[in-house]
Structure formats: C-alpha cells, structure tokens
Design a protein around this nucleic acid. Structure first.
Lengths: 378, 378
DNA sequence: GGTGCGGCGGCAATCGTTTTCCGCCTCCCT
DNA sequence: AGGGAGGCGGAAAACGATTGCCGCCGCACC
C-alpha cells in the first residue's frame, strides 16, 4: 500500500492493472471473478493491494441499492439486558459485512417513528425490532413496504416476520414451580405491560403454573406494570404487598421491575428473602450483584441477538426465504432472593438446576439463620 | 403524499414542478434556496411535499462526500456507564441530522482497529473516541489523516483533538476528603489502568489528597487494576485487603472495580461499611441499588455525551474551528457504603450533599447493629 | 434604442461503482 | 478451411443527487 492524497478509486486500480474499470470491478468481486481470466484477476488484485484500494461503500450502495446497514430499534438501551444482545447482533452482522444502526425509542411511539423513518431514509437493508407492541403502527408499515424485518425478544401476531424470542410461558412456569417447590403457596405476580408479548406470555405462564400447582391466583395477587422500569417496579411492589400482606413470594415478570420491587420491600420493612421471596425474569447483568442476588429466569442474551442477525441476513439475502420463529429455552437460576417461606416447616430443599443451593447464594448475614434452621430440621 | 412503487426522486419532483432537477435541488436546499425565485421554490417544495420526496442520502453523500454519520468507539457497552452517555451523544447529533455508528472495542486494540477501519471505509464524517489510551495507534493515525476527532471521558496528550472529560483529580480528591472527614486515616486505593488518563488522574488526585490530609499513602496501599471489570475489582480488592488488613476504607477509581471490591469484602468476611468503607467513581447506573448503595463520584453522563457531540459537530462544520478541552465538574454523592471507621469515636457526621445520612441508606439487616453501636457510644 | 448587468435557471459533468450489452478473438469441430 | 461457440473484457449507461458554468431575459442607464 502506498500513501497518497486521495484514496485510490477503482479507476486508479484499473489504470494500474491496464484494464477497464469494469474488468477491475469484476476481478475484485468474488461473485463475478469467474468472468475474467485468472491472470487478469491476479493483476487487478495485486494492483488493488498495492494502491491500498478500498471500495467506496457509498458509491457501491448507490448502484446496488444495498447499504449493508441494518436498523436496530431498542426500547431502552439503559436497560443492561440489551447491550449483550446488541453485541451478539453486531458480531454476527459484522461477520457478513453489515453494520448496525442502533436506535433508542424509550418506549415512545413518536420517537420510534422518528428513528424508524430516519433509518428508512438512510436505506437500511432491514430491521431488527426489539420494540414490538400490540399496536406498533410501524409493524404494519414495514409489512406493507415488504421490508426485511426480524422481531427480537418481543413478538407480534399476524405479521410475516421472522422472530426470535424466549419461551416466556415456560420460563415463568419455571419461576412459579421454583417457588412452589420451596413451599410457597401465596404467590403474587407483577406483570409486565400487557401490550407486549412478553407481558402476556409471562402472565399466562404464571396463571397456568399456579393452577397446575393447585394454588389460588386471584386478581388481587396480580399488579400490572405500565412500563419496564425500576420506578414502576417500586410502585407495583408497594401496591401488591400493601394490598396483600399474606404473600410470601412474588414472581416478577422482569428484572427491572424486580429491582424496583426490592425497593418496595425495603420501604415496607420486609426482608428478602426471609419475609418475601422474589424471582425475576431475564437474568440481566448485575442482578447477581444485588443483595440478595436475584433468582431469575435466564436466557442466552448474546445468542438471542446473534440469531436475530442470522434470521435477518437470511431474509435480506433472499426475500423468498421462509419466515422462521425461533424460541430459545429459558432456565431458572436460583440465587439468594428465594427461600422457603418462614411459615413452612424446615425440610429438604429440592436440588437446583445450576447445582447451587439457593440458600448458599443468599446474603451472608441472612443465610446462617436459615441454614441453621434447615439443619435443625434434619 | 401519494403512494407509488418507486420512491420519488429529485427528477420526479423537478418534472412535477416543471423545472430542471438542478433547480429543484437548489429550491430544496435551504443554503441555495436564495438562488431561485420565491415562486419557483414554492412550486418545487409543494411538488416535493405532494410526492413525498425524500432525498436519497446515499446519492447525496456520494456527491458531497459527507455521510452525516459519525463513528463512536466505546470501550465496553456492557458497562452501564456508557448507555446514558451514548444517549446524550445521539440526541445531540440527531438535532443536527447526524447519526452515530456505535462500535464496541472491549479494550482490545485489534478490535478497535477493525471497527475504526470499518468506519473510515464507510466515510464517517468524524469520530468520538471514548477508548483513548496512552498507546492508541489510531489516535496518531486519525491525527495524521486530519480526521475530525473528539475524545470523550478519556483524554490523551499531544494530539490536536477537542475533548470533553471529567475533572478526575478533583473528583478523586473529593472522594478522599469524604473518607477523611468521616475519620478514616488508613485508606487504600484501587487504581484504574495507568495507560488510561482517568487512571493516572484519579491516582494523582488520591495521592494529592492523602498528602493534603496528612495521611500516609505508601505503595502497599495501592493496587493497580489491569482492566475495568468486576472480576478485576474482585482480584484487586482481595489483594489490597489481604495485604493490608488495617485499611478501614478503600477509594476505588471506578465503579465496576468497586462492585468487584464488594465481592472481595464478602469473600474475606468483611462488612461494608462497618469494617471497610468503599467509595467508587462514576456513579454509574445501578450502584445506588447495591447493598449498601455505593458512595461514589458523580458526573453528568448525558451531558458528557451531548457536549462531545457538540464539539465534534463544530469540528466537522468548520475544520478550522479551535480545539477545545472541556472539563465537567464532578460531585461526591455519599450513600451507604461509607461511614466512620469502627475505631473512631462516634460523633456528628458532616451533612451529606444528597441530604441522606449514609447509615440510613445501608443494609437494613446490617445497619441496626452499627446504628446501635453508635448510639451506645453517645 | 443600444448596451450592460444581474437575477434566474438550464445544461452537463461529477461522485465511484456495478452491470448490461456487445464485440473480438480464439479454439474447436466438421 | 470455414463457421460457430464460448470466454474475456471493453463501452457506456445507469444509481440520484450537487454544482460550476453559462445563456437567456428583462430592466435600467446612457
């Protein structure tokens, strides 16, 4: 590579290799390389190398109508759940020469429309939407325009979009099963917003599992969050636990809400897990650093993003490729925020799927009491 | 706006308004509008409106060599410190019609080079680098190529780049002053990597302030982290506190490290804040949710990003604009992780800037002991 | 009434690629 | 030896905007 004022263009390469620019183009593109003789290709490639030629992606995009850019709409990048997902997405895209344009929407429809339009104007080749709600107008618009779209994490009915999501029903059932196995019978639920697929699926999982365990699940045991924020978790936690003092456990549909719920417990003078067990959903980063470490439902974040990227690339490369819906299996991870209810007799705890006794992972200052009780019971 | 198969081009608009495409272009661009008659401009604009004309940014970029895109290099997007900063950046950029291309580097030079080259190939108009280290080869390269660059959060000596950063020395001095005011005399420091400006500045602030308070600050009181991760914080915390059992407080140069340090305290059977006070740096999201809530040094995250964007836009719009270095003032926020050392006689605590007694904010299960002890001491 | 000037807007080149359409040359087959 | 086929590569037209240059027209001044 030689240093020059202006970066080398295809014409320069062609001139250096004594061929026509068209030939140089063919020689340089793997797809059309077989159209030129091996000798010519070699000469062109060598010249390109020597001049440090970098194809101008703008010019290429103009001609091919491909920007090798995809738009990614994230409801809230401040939620630490998303960065690892985005990482998986970006890495997979990068393997194929694509880059991601990240847009925050804050769950605000106007904002969502703005960034969506902005990205369309920039001719992104497709979209990964982590913002789907029941009433997203942009889904209909994207379907209408036949844009390649993949829904990520949240799904939506009635659109011809590929999607990758978590089996939320199963995940929430596992959360309830965990609490039930510990001996809890009066379990509350803080539900995520019901215009989001994760909200309804997890609520369904909760109700299903409660019924399957023969436990009552009345309307007074459920509080509906209107957003996925710590503040909203605080509000819901307060409401649920003041209205329903007998609850010994809360299955929270989202870790951000669960973090808020911790705050509510503090406010009400309740201890976690001694007075109330809490289980979240998502296993977002840092919840294992809380006191007590949060029991929650885990799914592979990075993979979710990577799979979404793969699905989108399939649709971009071949518009006729089939629509796929991919579900990732969730897994309960028991930590310190769940333990048997204070009223329950001490007894053998069931083995946990990550091999850790939940009591061992809980607050040092709190665990010895419980562990002692368990030992006495033997 | 009328719906059509192909999106309207400038030619379509021109045809609809019965003018030449060149005239339409002039009429549509605010900068050149005064070159056409008011009547013509009106007609063109009206036609554009009617056809739902959206200028093709790719074609425009090809001609103007401006992509209205800037590259942003982030050392670790999983660090929750960065999302709010990026938000500020993106919002400010959006106001001026620019979008950000976000790139993670993981503190890996190879990765950094890859995304940097990738972004240059895409003809970004400038860079915001939050990844500067003493030895970043790309800084020299960017300077050589006279790219518009703004350094964010981290600075570097000897480059003609604008920068926006925190006054890290002052911040760390405030952290030490806080601990000293509580009565601590044996204070350790977990230093951030010394090839990063924040690492050296905070260490300098620590040493300065220790000296100013007449406190010893020997080499055995300092451990150097080799990365800004929780794991590294864990390692450093263990090392510092096992080597130096008399420490009653640790000033940690970074919140991620501080979170790891919490883990080290647990491992060693030490309680925070009763046995060891901890103060971090950055006030990244969620540290107020830890138990105990982390005392730390705050700076305005969103603003940092927004100012970086402004600085970069200045440089882009006018390459001759002066280089500016902007420092944001930090502010100590005292939470539950700091209290007077156990050995100190109980006494009036200085008023905290957030109005909360640090003891009140700490772990409910732990605080009563300490609070009781304090009461007994009166 | 002629000349000059200024405002408006058309013409065409240009940005750097890709791709379609051909023409040429070679080689092989009959 | 002639003709056809096929491989190779050149010419030129896109893609959709911006912009330097220039011409036209009208008005004003001498």
């Amino acid at each position: 590579m030689v240093l020059s004022e202006q970066p080398a263009t295809l014409r320069d390469v062609a001139a250096a290799a004594r061929v026509h620019p068209a030939t140089a183009s063919r020689a340089l593109n793997p797809g059309t390389r077989l159209l030129v003789s091996e000798e010519t290709a070699r000469r062109v490639i060598e010249a390109a190398e020597r001049l440090g030629y970098r194809p101008n992606p703008v010019a290429r995009s103009l001609r091919t109508r491909r920007s090798h850019t995809v738009g990614v709409l994230i409801p809230d990048l401040n939620n630490p759940l998303f960065p690892p997902i985005v990482r998986g997405l970006e890495d997979r895209l990068a393997e194929h020469g694509y880059v991601a344009l990240i847009g925050n929407t804050d769950g605000d429809l106007n904002r969502e429309r703005m960034v969506f339009d902005q990205m369309r104007a920039r001719h992104v080749d497709g979209f990964v939407l982590a913002t789907a709600t029941l009433h997203s107008p942009i889904l209909a618009e994207a379907a209408e325009a036949e844009l390649p779209v993949v829904l990520m994490n949240r799904t939506a009915q009635g659109y011809p979009f590929s999607a990758v999501a978590v089996d939320n029903e199963q995940g929430e059932r596992a959360a309830v099963a965990h609490l039930a196995a510990l001996g809890h019978t009066r379990i509350g639920h803080i539900a995520a917003p019901q215009d989001i697929s994760t909200g309804t699926a997890r609520l369904r999982g909760f109700l299903d599992s409660m019924r399957a365990h023969g436990l009552a699940a009345g309307e007074d045991q459920i509080v509906y969050a209107s957003a996925l924020s710590i503040e909203e978790g605080l509000r819901c936690g307060r409401e649920l636990l003041t209205a329903n003092r007998e609850l010994t456990a809360v299955a929270v549909a989202n870790d951000m809400l669960a973090v808020g719920c911790y705050g509510a417990l503090d406010d009400l003078g309740l201890r976690c897990p001694e007075d109330v067990s809490v289980v979240g959903f998502n296993d977002m980063p840092f919840v294992d650093r809380l006191r007590p470490p949060l029991s929650t439902v885990r799914f592979p974040h990075y993979q979710l993003g990577a799979e979404a990227a793969t699905l989108l690339l399939e649709r971009i490369e071949n518009a006729a490729s089939p629509v796929k819906i991919l579900y990732l299996a969730p897994e309960l991870v028991a930590r310190g925020s769940t333990m048997p209810p204070a009223s329950a007799a001490a007894r053998e705890l069931p083995a946990q799927d990550d091999g850790r006794d939940p009591a061992q992972a809980s607050v040092p200052t709190a665990v010895p009491l419980r562990r002692g009780a368990a030992h006495r019971g033997r």
